[in-house]
């Protein structure tokens, strides 16, 4: 009897594992299938070299570059803001702050990640943009800068929390060794702790980048929806995610080429985040081995 129970439980667990794998496989299949149909009509060379993305206009161009540049630009701004801030926070919490502070501040910081992104989007559009306009003349109402900055605020906890975990996981014996050698707190933090936790910190940064690239609402609301191949953060741009939202909400016909652009854009995005996650997984595995 007990054996049957064990068997049932085992199979149930296996099924739930298989379901997630199957769903992932299904998503990839649908993405690839539709994207394949898209690339039968649009050459893949054009897709990666054309500098215009106007599938919804009469003069159609299918160059992903403007969307890609929009995505990378907003993500870059977000990461450039979140990494120094997040890392400073993590170093402060793990190496300077009293222990009681750590237990209260960490959940508070993680709340930042719990704010709905649509709220962040409107925060960027109605608070940050007007604020930035007060000292950046010519800043457009929709722009990559404020969307990127607010996205940066959103991903701070990704960086700070995971980095702090990595710093916290450094054995105390190393802290003792470095203080025993006469390190100051600053020397201990930057010469011993950060290098010892570097793989964990890198993983946190990669996950933050991955999150920024996949972020949708903030950029859809605050960055504008104009695909534009530019690195100028003050003008409206469109990201891959924002484009997907725009078209999904519109009335393009199911099965049309316009409809399939979503999947072409989607698979590009997928490849990006998949690569980043793979890299971070690899680093994390290496990191685990190091302290065993």
């Amino acid at each position: 009897m007990r054996r049957i129970k064990e068997l049932v439980i085992e199979k149930a667990l296996l099924t739930s594992a298989l379901i997630t794998v199957a769903i992932t496989a299904g998503i990839i299949l649908v993405l690839s299938f539709e994207a394949f149909a898209f690339f039968r009509e649009v050459s893949i060379v054009d897709f990666f070299t054309d500098t215009e993305w106007t599938p919804l206009f009469s003069n159609k161009h299918y160059g992903i570059l403007p969307l890609l540049s929009g995505t990378l630009l907003t993500s870059f701004i977000a990461v450039a803001f979140a990494v120094p801030v997040g890392l400073s926070i993590s170093i402060y919490i793990s190496e300077y702050a009293p222990r009681s502070f750590r237990t209260s501040i960490k959940p508070a910081l993680e709340l930042l990640a719990a704010v709905p992104t649509v709220v962040y989007g409107f925060f960027a559009l109605t608070v940050v943009t007007p604020f930035l306009q007060s000292f950046i003349p010519g800043l457009s109402g929709f722009n990559a800068l404020s969307a990127g900055l607010v996205m940066g605020i959103m991903i701070i906890p990704f960086v700070s929390s995971l980095s702090e975990d990595a710093l916290h996981a450094v054995p105390d014996s190393l802290r003792e060794a470095s203080f025993g050698m006469g390190s100051t707190k600053l020397q201990n933090a930057f010469r011993v702790m950060v290098p010892a936790a570097s793989s964990g910190i890198v993983v946190s940064v990669i996950l933050a980048i991955s999150r920024a690239i996949g972020e949708t609402m903030i950029v859809a609301i605050a960055a504008g929806q104009q695909p534009r191949l530019t690195l100028d953060p003050t003008v409206p741009v469109e990201t891959i995610t924002a484009y997907i939202v725009q078209v999904s909400l519109g009335d393009v016909q199911h099965g049309s080429l316009e409809y399939r652009t979503i999947f072409a854009a989607g698979i590009t995005l997928f490849v990006f985040t998949f690569l980043l996650n793979t890299v971070s997984y690899r680093i994390r595995k290496k990191f685990q081995e190091k302290y065993e």
Partner: peptide, 13 residues
């Protein structure tokens, strides 16, 4: 005042 600890604790360097 140098110190040597119970478990060898070289830096990961």
């Amino acid at each position: 005042v140098g110190m040597v600890f119970q478990k060898p604790n070289p830096f990961p360097k």
